[in-house]
C-alpha cells in the first residue's frame, strides 16, 4: 500500500498513565498492518516523529498511537486537543509476518508494547494462538492489554520457562535495544525465530536519507538496511547488534 501524507483529526486524547498519552486519529487512511508506523509533523521541531501503530479501526478509519513523553516533540503532541488537526505520513515500513499454526509469544518492553497490542489484535482475528507479556519499570508506567504484566523486574526473567510451558514456536518483540538483543540470543539458543521491531532516529522515514541505518548479516554478507523502509521489523538472528 502506498504511503501518503494525511491530515487527520484528533478524535480522542487520553492520558493513560503518568507519561503516556493515547491518541485516536481519524483520517482517510483506510488500511495498515501491525509493525508499521506513522510519522507525525511537530511544527515546533525540524523533523517528524515516528510512532508505532497501536490499533486501527477499519470501519471508522481511526488510527491509535501511544505517545510517551520524551522531549519537545512529544510534549507538543500531548498538548493537542480533540478536534485539532494532525499531519502524518502513513503507513510506513514493513509489517510482522504471521504463521497460521504457530504459537506466538509477544514481548513488549515499556512503550514497546504499542505495536504488540496491534499485533495481538490481528492474531486474535486470525485465530492464531498468542501470549503477550509486557514489562514496565514501575506501577505508574503500566499500559494495559497484556496476558501477563511484569512490574519492576525484567520482562526476560522467566522468558525461557514461558517459551517451554506455552510451546512457543515464534517470538515477536519491541522495546529497548538491549531487550531485543538478549531476546534474540535466547531465541537463537532455543532455535525459535524471533522478529524484532527496531528504532532509530529518522529524518525522511521513507528510505532515502540513509539516516536510520542498521547492519544485518544476510546471505553471509554485512549490508546496510534502513529501519524506516526495510524495517522496522527484522529477524533478530540477522541483526548485527554491536
Amino acid at each position: 500500500m502506498k504511503s501518503k501524507n494525511y491530515i487527520g483529526k484528533i478524535k480522542l486524547i487520553e492520558k493513560i498513565n503518568h507519561d503516556v498519552y493515547k491518541l485516536d486519529i481519524q483520517s482517510s487512511l483506510n488500511d495498515c498492518k501491525s509493525g508499521q508506523f506513522v510519522s507525525v509533523l511537530c511544527p515546533n521541531k525540524t523533523l517528524r516523529r515516528p510512532f508505532s501503530i497501536c490499533d486501527f479501526d477499519k470501519e471508522n478509519k481511526i488510527l491509535t498511537i501511544l505517545i510517551k513523553l520524551k522531549g519537545e516533540g512529544t510534549k507538543y503532541l500531548s498538548s493537542l486537543k480533540e478536534g485539532d488537526e494532525i499531519n502524518f505520513i502513513a503507513p510506513l515500513g514493513n509489517c510482522f509476518e504471521f504463521f497460521k499454526d504457530k504459537n506466538a509469544l509477544l514481548v513488549g518492553a515499556g512503550i514497546g508494547i504499542a505495536p504488540m497490542l496491534f499485533l495481538k489484535k490481528e492474531m486474535n482475528e486470525r485465530n492464531i494462538n498468542n501470549y503477550l507479556i509486557s514489562g514496565f519499570k514501575a506501577d505508574e508506567e503500566v499500559i494495559e492489554g497484556s496476558d501477563e504484566t511484569i512490574v519492576g523486574g525484567s520482562v526476560l526473567d522467566n522468558i525461557e520457562k514461558i517459551i517451554k510451558e506455552k510451546n512457543i514456536d515464534v517470538i515477536y518483540s519491541c522495546g529497548p535495544i538491549i531487550v531485543l538483543k538478549m531476546l534474540s540470543q535466547i531465541a537463537k539458543k532455543l532455535n525459535i525465530p524471533c522478529y524484532v521491531a527496531m528504532e532509530r532516529v529518522m529524518a525522511c522515514s521513507i528510505g532515502v536519507c540513509r539516516g536510520c541505518i542498521i547492519k544485518l548479516v544476510r546471505d553471509n554478507k554485512i549490508d546496510n538496511f534502513s529501519v524506516c523502509k526495510d524495517g522496522p521489523v527484522f529477524k533478530g538472528e540477522e541483526v548485527l547488534w554491536d
Binding site: 521541531k45 525540524t46 523533523l47 532516529v201 529518522m202 529524518a203 536519507c209 540513509r210 539516516g211 536510520c212 541505518i213
Partner: peptide
C-alpha cells in the same frame, strides 16, 4: 547519522 538542531539538522 542524524542530529536535529533548531530549524535544521546535522547529518
Amino acid at each position: 547519522r542524524i542530529f536535529e538542531v533548531q530549524n535544521g539538522l546535522i547529518n
